[in-house]
Design a protein around this nucleic acid. Structure first.
Lengths: 122, 122
DNA sequence: ATTTTGCGTAACCGAAAGGTTACATTATAT
DNA sequence: ATATAATGTAACCTTTCGGTTACGCAAAAT
């Protein structure tokens, strides 16, 4: 099981579960009530969220209370943060420029292709 | 095709492609050189990234230059941003508390379950 | 003691994901 | 004009995903 945070939040149902649990812990049935899918299906989602550390389960008798452990989302934030500059005003202007160029078919490629690059930044 | 940004960045290869393209536009073969997978496989990844708006393709003769369009990542940032409070120092302390409780089996549940919640925050 | 509740798990299913090879097409180079 | 380079696409395969129903089991309620 690969189970990384990126894959975990790819599913919209799991993102909803995260939203619910961020407000207060819930046991499995309480979560399932909010969805049209079956209880075992929710159980599987919880398992995935648990495996990647986004949710922690606390046993209370026969109930399992699920807590959001959202500091694990920092992994996602850290990745996106590297590209934050790309949605600032200044950069948007460049994107617009490129989009316009694409429509007109004008030659501007070299300008972009030769931008200085820094190695090893994955 | 669902093709939302969350699903697009779930795949590690696509995240690497995004990292490469954020430095400079590349044509498809240039991208493929960096991976062990076949060229058609890369082509499929580019298609997915294009469909959700993370990449734009600019045709130059027989070549297709792929540009990163990273302002679309803002969607991801906006979602995660709602939970930023959960990985600040203060909240981490709460998480630690919960984790310790889970180990000891002590009763603290009600305290958390009764936290004030605000509606409609998905 | 018996029933009900809250859950995990197993077996199964169809669809989608991620990859491959083979082939077609068009632009450029020779 | 012919060959080669850059790419899309189709057909196919295997694995994973997200869901289901059926069942089992322990805790709680009766």
């Amino acid at each position: 099981m690969r189970r990384d945070v990126f894959q975990a939040i790819a599913d919209p149902t799991r993102r909803e579960i995260i939203g619910m649990l961020s407000q207060r812990p819930l046991n499995l049935n309480a979560i399932a009530e909010n969805f049209d899918i079956s209880r075992p299906a929710v159980s599987k989602h919880i398992r995935i969220l648990t495996e990647c550390g986004l949710v922690a389960v606390q046993l209370r008798g026969r109930e399992r209370y699920c807590h959001a452990q959202l500091h694990k989302l920092k992994e996602v934030v850290d990745w996106t943060e590297r590209y934050r500059v790309f949605w600032t005003k200044k950069l948007d202007a460049l994107e617009d420029f490129l989009a316009a160029d694409q429509r007109s078919g004008k030659k501007v490629q070299t300008k972009i292709a030769n931008r200085k690059i820094s190695k090893k930044n994955r």
